[in-house]
Design a protein around this nucleic acid. Sequence first.
DNA 1: TAGATTGTTAATCGATTAACAATC
DNA 2: TAGATTGTTAATCGATTAACAATC
Lengths: 248, 248
Amino acid sequence: MDKYDGFKDGVRDEDIVGVDSEELDQQRAILAHSNVSDAVIKRLPRYFRYLRELLRQGRMRISSGELASLMNVTASQIRQDLNCFGGFGQQGYGYNVNYLFAKICEILGVGAGYRAVIINANELGRALVRTGLFEKRGVDIVGLFDTDSDWIGRDVEGVFVYDLCTLEEFCEKNCVDIAVLTLPQAELPGVARRLIDLGVSGIWNYTGAEIKMELGDTIVENIHLGDSLMILNYKIGSQKAIEDKENL
Amino acid sequence: MDKYDGFKDGVRDEDIVGVDSEELDQQRAILAHSNVSDAVIKRLPRYFRYLRELLRQGRMRISSGELASLMNVTASQIRQDLNCFGGFGQQGYGYNVNYLFAKICEILGVGAGYRAVIINANELGRALVRTGLFEKRGVDIVGLFDTDSDWIGRDVEGVFVYDLCTLEEFCEKNCVDIAVLTLPQAELPGVARRLIDLGVSGIWNYTGAEIKMELGDTIVENIHLGDSLMILNYKIGSQKAIEDKENL
DNA sequence: TAGATTGTTAATCGATTAACAATC
DNA sequence: TAGATTGTTAATCGATTAACAATC
């Protein structure tokens, strides 16, 4: 326990969201041995959420067993997942919540200070600004873009709406890492082309259409709301079929 | 080819979105043998999108091989996936696009006529109404609900905003199948409790928090936007690490 | 030291792919 | 009939779980 307090001291002053440049090397190191499977990556944000909650509750430590029963997964899976990125725990003790959360944040680029623009200041684009989603993950929204002169020049929750014509100019000046696309599907290929040519690191695609072009080093993450709705529909139908069967 | 035209005739008059009650039995039958894995279910909406596109292009038939190369998956996977629900193809011919699309729509409950309410007419709730997302999947939005008197009584794209107090009354009168939750996390447990007690078939949860209670027969589908953003962050970091390595 | 719990290897399970007989 | 392509079985691959030695 005493020993572990020392361990804990090592991270006491660490700012979870801010990352100083000295640490960057270590962080890159964590990410570099990345032959981590997609299955693992998809589970990481859920660890983030549970650890954040434990931290809010003031929990200092947790074992894989207890976390497993909270999350309804196996302890084995948790230990395997975490060990893809290093040994964050301590035998006989478990995991220090504060330290583990900090590590998960690092891995997930929370507080990496990525800068994002949202393309189309339509209701969805504006809703995304207002949810506080980006803020909570340490992503800065540095601008909204639109072609609609009714919106250009206005201000949404402190974020300026720029003319889409000025996208290239803006991105080159402002080190934009991420573009969030809420625009109509018809405009997707053109804008995606421009963003990829600009060398943007990531595209968060809400259009529901797929980006079908050479991506270079640009990462695309899709939000397919329609797909999710259909999966819900499917499961409802499936459940209704089961109920019907039972009522025979 | 002639033979297959006969096959095609069989579905020519079928209304893809509307489903008559005679067909309902067959539809339930498809869904009943549902020991279909989650991996398969998650892929179905993508088939929906590709088939819809082929239909728009006027394609009559497609082989698993061609569809596979369009979708960047194996032909084997497509045939396995579709065969979870029945033999929709024909040896030597392939799949009739119109027929297969109709089947996928049935499976995914597109046009099952599910009725949905959205709880909180906040910007996200209103954005979801305006995207046309529900309409395109044959889901009817029958009401918005809010506690904010500024919004109660107003009309969003033809959908009325009701007082959340009247939720029970409304749902019992109006056969509500799905509740879409865009409300703040703090209000989730209370509202989810009410919906589950009402016996709502599905909850489409945008809050980012998990619903931690006995669900009964209610299906929950989560949209974790924050998780998706962190996955994008992760992959960007990972990509940057690879680039750094190369530039040594 | 003894107890607890990790990190990691080995065993199991499930999902994907390949192959091919059935058949249009 | 011959060619094409499915439906389905068998082989492979990867992910999950179980087990346990390492160690705090």
